[in-house]
Computed example of a mutant assay.
Amino acid sequence: MSAVLESMNPDAAPLAAPLPEKRARSERLASQGVTLSNGKPRLRTFLLAVLPPVLGLGLLVLLWQILSLNNSSFPSPAVTFAEAVRMFADPFYRNGPNDQGIGWNILASLKRVALGFGLAAAVGIPLGFLIGRFSFLAGMFNPIISLLKPVSPLAWLPIGLLVFKSADPAAIWSIFICSIWPMIVNTASGVQRVPQDYMNVARVLQLSEWKIFTKILLPSVLPTMLTGVRLAIGTAWLVIVAAEMLTGGVGIGFWVWDEWNNLNVPHIIIAIVVIGVVGLVLELALVALAKAFTYEQAGT
């Protein structure tokens, strides 16, 4: 029937012409390599996203298997996986202060990281804003930061033991001192890179320092500041494992060292994987936070 109508009126538009918004959506999807008429481009995109990580992990497991075949003391992937299943069946058991499940050790390490990292953020971020805002403070603190930032965080551990007389506060002190430098440096750098035109407008409008901070500096510096926070959390999680190996007590680092003393290699490998997974989760959480507070220009 539609063909008959079209033949009677050749100048008429097709009856089933796609709507403009649907056409725009199809063109946008096509520019991204996705078409709705068939699933081949979508399948190709999915395979390109999934296949490389799977192949990489498969290669790692293969090398691990080869290493275990050439070294009888090194556990195979199958043995380690079976031990991991048994371990995570009850990760929160307690048979005494030195015999606790891996879950309690992870929580103890995360608690120390949260305390040290939180203290570093409470001190480092405001100090970074002040250093970036006032050149006098920048000239005062920049030499100190340049002198102390390259020092290994574990070098501060004996100072913490000397001052606090306890292993737990000393480990938190090490987290604090290693986390504070990325926050200060990135925040100060972000403040110093705020366009001068913004500050000139604030001066003309006679805005208070609080208005300058909330309306100009904070929105402009937030992405750079969150980059410093991401760097700091990665360093903090890295340092806590080494600090706990030296200080002892409950924690994933001490647990690794204790399993080494017991020559329990499968547990050490499991702990390495767990440390990597927890660090990855912390990193992804901060990446999501950074994306939530990063404002992109319209049309990008």
Rank of each mutant, 00 (worst) to 15 (best):
L115I: 15
A138H: 15
N9Q: 12
N71Q: 10
V204C: 13
D11T: 05
P53W: 13
L36N: 14
Q196D: 11
L60N: 09
F254Q: 10
L29S: 10
R112P: 04
S68C: 10
Q100K: 06
L205I: 04
W173Y: 14
V265P: 13
P53G: 12
T45W: 15
A17L: 08
L238Y: 08
I106H: 03
F129C: 10
K111W: 10
V239E: 14
R230S: 04
K211S: 06
P266M: 14
L284A: 10
G276I: 09
L161F: 04
A108C: 12
V151G: 02
A82R: 15
F176T: 02
N186A: 12
V274G: 02
M225T: 06
F129T: 02
T187D: 00
A298G: 11
L130N: 02
V256A: 13
I233G: 04
I131C: 02
I145G: 00
W181K: 03
P126L: 00
C178R: 00
L47W: 03
W210M: 13
A242N: 10
P41M: 13
I106A: 09
E21W: 08
S37E: 10
L238S: 11
L148I: 05
L238I: 11
L107P: 04
M199T: 06
S152D: 01
V256K: 06
V61P: 02
P153F: 01
P158C: 03
L226H: 03
S146R: 03
T247A: 08
P10M: 05
S26V: 10
R230I: 05
I106K: 01
D90S: 15
A12P: 00
V265C: 14
P52W: 12
A155E: 01
V273M: 12
D168A: 05
G276W: 05
N9R: 11
L231P: 03
P158Y: 06
I125T: 02
F92K: 00
A89C: 01
G276L: 06
F134L: 12
L161A: 03
L47G: 05
N200F: 08
S72N: 03
P150F: 04
G234F: 10
I106Q: 02
T224G: 03
G228E: 07
I269N: 06
V241W: 02
W173E: 00
V123C: 05
V250Q: 14
T294R: 03
I102M: 15
E296R: 14
N186P: 09
S166F: 01
V250K: 12
I175T: 01
I275M: 07
I102L: 14
A288M: 15
F88E: 09
I275E: 03
P10T: 13
G58N: 14
I270T: 08
L110R: 11
K291G: 07
L15K: 09
L284E: 14
I240D: 05
V54T: 09
V277Y: 02
P20E: 13
L5H: 05
L207K: 01
A108I: 06
A13E: 12
G128Q: 07
P266D: 14
F117E: 06
P195D: 12
V281K: 07
V256C: 03
I272Y: 12
I240N: 08
I145E: 00
W255Y: 15
T247L: 05
E209S: 10
I145W: 00
N186W: 01
P75D: 07
Q65N: 05
D90I: 07
L63C: 12
L130H: 04
E244F: 07
L130S: 08
N262M: 06
P126T: 00
A292W: 06
T35S: 13
